[in-house]
Each structure stands twice: as structure tokens, then as C-alpha cells.
Design a protein around this nucleic acid. Structure first.
Lengths: 253, 253
DNA sequence: TAGTGGTCTAGACCACTGC
DNA sequence: CAGTGGTCTAGACCACTAA
């Protein structure tokens, strides 16, 4: 094959495979040829082919598993729209997820995997400006679309604002949390979402069924009250290869 | 060293180096030990150390260059806020960039590198729903903060709406484009930003001074007119390791 | 069990940097 | 020039999967 450019051979092989996949030569769901076959085909060693395929995996184009062939990924890119608009009234509660799924024609499910009062991590202490020994309610949910793991959502509310754990009990509707906070005088009036990208942790990649090195969105939504203090925060972790985020708003005339 | 877990050694080395960097053992701006030194220290080969450091590079924690040591990255994480709010009135024009920079205390600069009328790429044809031979104005800018390359911005306007290339002439203030479109009856009333993450292309990584495999945000903002048609679109490419995106809005009571 | 991908070594050569 | 990181080979062994 023509692998002569001043570009690493494993990159060139990745380019060729990428092109072949996009051209439909290896349709989604089918297996790539084995690394030994590819090595023979391109005159490289298995190690080099492994490097090439690793590039494609990082891009989310293929999916590898232990002891099995490498499969071309089916990319169910889902939009996550947070419409900020009079017509599509924002629903800043957790139910936004269910709504997005419904719009995409998927059935959604959320498992509550943790509901606790904890000493918060560094990041959360800083966000709320908490004192040393202050505790927060943590509420961790695993979310599915058509039984495929999609998203991890972790919500934090300082006890200072919540009063007690009861505020976040399972039977509290998600948007109900804001109503409860409002009753206690901490109703949110403003929201901010911060979006970062990072490598997934081992636990996250296990649940989301993505390789460890793969990239995830971490979206942190803070609910801010009239006194300009964050009163609740929710971290959402989603696979960045499978998701597209979207925000919309109306021009103020 | 204690590299015995059922986890690849190069991953363990990456973990140790990551921890050392975060602990301040290798402060930002300083060089890591050479790969041969690290290889001796951990009882591995240079190749394996190279694999380990490559992981850190992908995370944006270190920066490698040809023939030079690997340096711990200074992470100038900048927020990019699009406030959707009566107080902080959204400025959907390109000058939002300058505004963000000013808020971060940075001087900004934008170079116009291309202004042309072209046959649009696939993605843009689909976005605007163009006919086969329709052309669009393309306006490509390279943006800097304190002379460091930060962002590539590519704006598209179908000739159908623009009338002629003059609409986007260099001396047209960026927000002026929307005023001109409004004069022609295509004033935007609504905006949507879609956020994706992908590997950078060779050209992008060259300009942004990031490694080729590194991840970039691609933010596409569409301006939509009263007839619900997109009339302008702007693709922004930013390094995902250096940036954090943020969106804010007020709760409708 | 045979086949897959994942990792690792020992050794090599390269392109590039900075002195 | 010596030192850096980047790539590649030939060969090896492993863990895992599927038949």
C-alpha cells in the first residue's frame, strides 16, 4: 500500500480505515478485519495496527472489547436541547431528560443509586462557598434510554438550604425540589450551565459502556436564588461521542 | 516501584505522573524528566513511558513538542459565557468573543483569513436546505487572546439572503451583519448553538498549537429568522482542554 | 481451544531541538 | 553535536471470548 508520506504509518492506516468506514465498506455493527489480517495487508505489525485502531476508538468510530473483534460503532447521536424560550418553556428540573428522550422517540428510565447526606468534595464546597463541616444532600441517578445507559446525574443540595434529606426523597418529583426550596425561601431565579470535556473515570466508563480513555461531557447546572447564591447543583456526565448539546434562545428585540 | 495491579503498567505510570503533577511536584511550565529517566525509574522501556505520557497529553495535562522535553501545561481555562438574560443582553454577533476576553482581562485580536463566495460543504447545504448550485459567503477568522491562538470562527451566509459579498466586507462590524440581514427582511429572531466534540484536524491543531489527536469543541450557532429559516451560521472551533463553555438564563416565573 | 485484542520488551532509527 | 520524543519491528505473553 502507499504508506510513504511524512506521516506516521499507523495514522495513515487510521485514515484509510476511517475513510473505508465512512464510505460504507464496513457498515455500523459489522466487525473490522482482525489486526493480524490488517497487519499483513498494510505490511505492518499487529502492534502498529493496534495503534491505528486505538485512534479510531478514541474518536468513537469503533468499539473494542476483550477477546472479540472490533466493531464499527452505531452512532445514536442524540440532541440534548435546552430551549430558552417563551414557547418552549425551560424546565430546569431533572425531568428535562425525560422530555428530551420523548422528543427523540426513546423510552427513558432513571435509577436512583444513591441518596445520602455527605461531606462534600472540594469542587462542591467551592461552588457553594460552604464552611468546613457543612454537609450536603447527594442524589445520584443512572439514566437510560431504551435500556441503554446514557447519563449519570449527581445532584447536590446543601443541608443549609434543604433543611433535611426529606427534601430530596425519591417520591419528590424532580422539579418539586425547586418548589420545596422556594417554600423555604431559596427559590432559584437563575441558572447557569458549565460545560467541560474530560476523560472518563473507570466507574463512569463502566456504566456508560465506553472505553476508559474516551471523552465525556461534564455539564454542571447551578440553580441560583434571588440573593445570587447557588442553592442546588447538578452534574451530568454523558459520552461526548454519542451526544450533541444544544442551546437555543430568542433574540431580545 | 509498585506496578503490580491488574492495570496496564503504562496506565499506572500515567496515574503516578498525573498525581505528581497535581501535587505540584512538577509545576506548570516545568519539564518532566526525560522518557529514558522515567523508564529507568519505573523499570519499563522508553516506548512504554511514551505511551504513558501520551495519555497525559491527550488529557491536556502536558504539552509535547518535537525534540524538546515534555512540559507541564499551564491551563488557562477560560470561560465562555453566553448569558441569556435581560441584564446581560445577549450579543449574538462575533463581538461576543471580544466581550468574553475583556471580561477575562485579556486583549483580543481577530484576523480575517478568508472572505469568499464558495460552493458550500455538505454540512452547510443541509443546514440551510440549499439547492444544488447555490453559493454562500464564507468568512473565516483566526482569533487570539494576548496573541495566543484561541479560536477559529467560520461564518456562512447564503447569497440568497446576503444579496452579495458586500454584506460581509471586512469593515462591516460583526453585529452589523444581522442589521444588514434585517434590512433585507431576514433579520434573525432566534438562535441555536449546537455543541459537539471531536478530534482536531491537522490544520486546526496547527493553528491552535495543540497535538493532532487533541479534542476540540465545535460550536455551531445558527441565526434563524421569523420564517424559521436559518439565515446565517457560524462554526467556532476551540481547544476543549483549555476552554469551558457556559450558558446562563433566568427562570421565567 | 483457537482467535481476538492489549501490552510489553529490546533494540533500532528518525526528526527535531538547543547548545 | 547530544538529547529529546515519535515510531516501528519482531517476537512474546496475557486475558478474554466464542465455538
Amino acid at each position: 500500500m502507499g504508506l510513504e508520506e511524512p506521516r506516521a504509518k499507523y495514522r495513515q492506516v487510521a485514515d484509510l480505515l476511517r475513510a473505508a468506514i465512512k464510505a460504507g465498506e464496513y457498515p455500523p455493527g459489522t466487525a473490522l478485519p482482525g489486526q493480524l489480517d490488517l497487519a499483513k495487508k498494510y505490511g505492518l505489525t499487529q502492534s502498529s495496527i493496534s495503534d491505528a485502531v486505538a485512534l479510531l476508538e478514541r474518536e468513537g468510530l469503533v468499539r473494542k472489547a476483550q477477546g472479540r473483534p472490533t466493531f464499527v460503532q452505531e452512532i445514536p447521536t442524540v440532541k440534548r436541547i435546552r430551549l430558552i424560550d417563551k414557547d418552549y418553556r425551560t424546565n430546569p428540573g431533572g425531568s428535562a431528560f425525560a422530555e428530551e428522550m420523548r422528543r427523540s422517540g426513546l423510552t427513558s428510565k432513571a435509577d436512583l443509586v444513591e441518596l445520602d447526606v455527605i461531606d462534600p468534595p472540594e469542587q462542591i464546597v467551592a461552588l457553594f462557598g460552604l464552611d468546613d463541616d457543612e454537609q450536603v444532600i447527594i442524589r445520584r441517578r443512572h439514566m437510560f434510554a431504551d435500556d441503554i445507559p446514557i447519563q449519570i446525574a449527581i445532584s447536590y443540595i446543601p443541608i443549609r438550604y434543604a433543611g433535611s434529606k426529606d427534601l430530596a426523597l425519591p417520591d419528590t418529583g424532580p422539579s418539586g425540589i425547586y418548589a420545596r426550596l422556594a417554600e423555604r425561601g431559596f427559590g432559584p431565579v437563575r441558572f447557569v450551565e458549565e460545560i467541560e470535556v474530560r476523560s472518563s473515570t473507570v466507574e463512569e466508563s463502566r456504566f456508560l459502556r465506553i472505553p476508559t480513555e474516551q471523552i465525556v461531557f461534564e455539564v454542571v447546572r447551578s440553580a441560583i436564588d434571588a440573593g445570587d447564591k447557588p442553592v442546588e447543583a447538578c452534574r451530568n456526565i454523558l459520552s461526548a461521542a454519542q451526544w450533541k448539546l444544544a442551546y437555543g434562545w430568542r433574540q431580545e428585540p
